[in-house]
Amino acid sequence: MIEKKFRIKNKLGIHARPAGQLVKVATRFKSAIYISRNGNEVNAKSIMGVLMLEAGHGSEVIIRINGEDEFSALEAIEELIDKRQFDEE
């Protein structure tokens, strides 16, 4: 199992579109993927779960992954959250 903290940098935070992107990336992998904020952990493959976190600009989330392809999953999520910032400013 691996875990990593992320800071949300795009201006609007994880609203519907970024949540959709995250779920899309997460569902590509076999591993169980979770995302948590302020101690609330939800399945990163569930749209409504991810939206429930209300992770706005500057907030901190933890991604926890467990499974055979956990490293490549983390890499893909890093790419989306840190490098691409959900393709938003």
């Binding site: 609007l12 609203h15 939206l51 209300e54 992770a55 706005g56 500057g58």
Partner: peptide
Amino acid sequence: NLINAMKDQE
């Protein structure tokens, strides 16, 4: 609504 709520938090 969600975006507004997140802005308020920030």
